[in-house]
Design a protein around this nucleic acid. Structure first.
Lengths: 222, 222
DNA sequence: TTCAGAGTGTAACAACTGTTACACTTTTAT
DNA sequence: ATAAAAGTGTAACAGTTGTTACACTCTGAA
């Protein structure tokens, strides 16, 4: 497991940690390691601390009432997990968190977070910004789910990945996970994808996706 | 327009305002009144301040890329509007906000919010809690949208309204707005509703909904 | 009161998606 | 290297939803 620098963490970067060891001692936090595929957090668990993913990567997903799985996101260290819920009134986590590889998680008590927030305005500010970005992410997720056709969802998703006109990129989800992410059935997604390939709108090679006809893609949104 | 007490506001209640007039002067905020049906905030507008709904009620909705409307929520004063986005990196508001009646909105500059956050831990705490609750709301919205059948969505929604075994309640949305809320077409929703009424699972009288067979409702979730 | 507009019920049809099933390929673990 | 597991492509069919269209009811304003 490679060492991750806390300075890269969106909420911890402003902590100006001179001596990370001393800081961590001071913080009264605990660190725990989970093996690959372990269920780290269960939907409904109480959230009385901030979970900081310090090493590895995890996926979060919701189990809906009808038993279906809705993939939410894939998180890479260093980043906090569901930071907003430390402060919620019903502080139960709404998602399952599963280790995608061996991961290390730091648990910081709520009281410590409160202390950091009040004593360190920079920490507070970046914590707020991070939460705001998470909200934006959820809104975007909402928008994706509200698109009614599968091809529309795929188009929305792929167009989002096109950065600086780079038409090729790799998606770190297999087809089953992608179907969960879109909230659709796997064979239905496969059908839509293969039709889009047949229409020369996109090309797929394993997890490498290429946009061949972005005008055509955009038309699928309508 | 009836007077609303800021003490009822989820984020302002902890401000311990002795003299509201003096407090507001001090806060360097501005107040604006909008007539019924006015579009107060446009999707994509920059958000450089905290908008506080001090009187009246508004609805928020997203216009999706395919031109469809996705209803998000109905907000009654006093409550902040999209508080999270003041701190986001891309601080553009993702929703349209429309006045449902004559409303009064207080605009508090970001700098003032920062000042309140750092000087008033109680304010900060309730601000955080409120944001967390909003996140929970969005997650719930996500869950609703991920349900694949319309009857399932209706069941989820109605079962949520059953509080303390009260099987009757009124929904403050008409059928068109409800369809937008679920992200489905209006005639499709009407069909599903009328089938559920025909099966004696629910009864509808104008905006008054009654759950007749909650076991049957729950089965629609599966 | 009356009329215009908004909201609702419903139908027929097309389009899309889910389900189930199975063969095939790729990856992973031993 | 090999078997087991995971992932993918595809087909047929049923089921659900969207679209469009129109008649009807209700509401609020003049």
């Amino acid at each position: 497991m490679k060492k991750v620098d806390l300075a890269d963490c969106p909420v911890c970067s402003k902590l100006e940690i001179d001596d990370e060891g001393a800081f961590l001692d001071d913080l009264k936090c605990s660190i725990k390691v989970y093996p690959k595929n372990e269920l780290i957090i269960r939907q409904g668990d109480l959230c009385d601390a901030l979970y900081l993913l310090t090493n590895g990567s995890v996926k979060t997903e919701m189990i809906t009432e009808n038993g279906n799985v809705l993939g939410i996101e894939i998180i890479k260290a260093p980043r906090p997990l569901a930071p907003a819920f430390v402060f919620s009134e019903n502080n139960r986590l709404p998602v399952d968190v599963t280790a995608l590889e061996e991961v290390e998680i730091m648990k910081i008590p709520k009281a410590e977070i409160m202390r950091l927030m009040t004593t360190n305005p920079d920490f507070m500010s970046s914590f707020m910004t991070h939460n705001a970005n998470r909200t934006q992410f959820l809104i975007n997720r909402l928008q994706l789910l509200s698109i009614k056709t599968i091809k529309g969802k795929v188009a929305h998703f792929l167009l989002e990945q096109v950065i600086d006109s780079k038409k090729s990129f790799s998606i770190n989800r297999n087809q089953t996970e992608l179907a969960d992410f879109f909230g659709v059935a796997r064979p239905s997604l496969a059908r839509s994808l293969s039709e889009m390939v047949g229409d020369n709108i996109i090309a797929i090679n394993k997890k490498e996706y290429t946009v061949l006809n972005s005008k055509g893609l955009r038309e699928l949104l309508v």
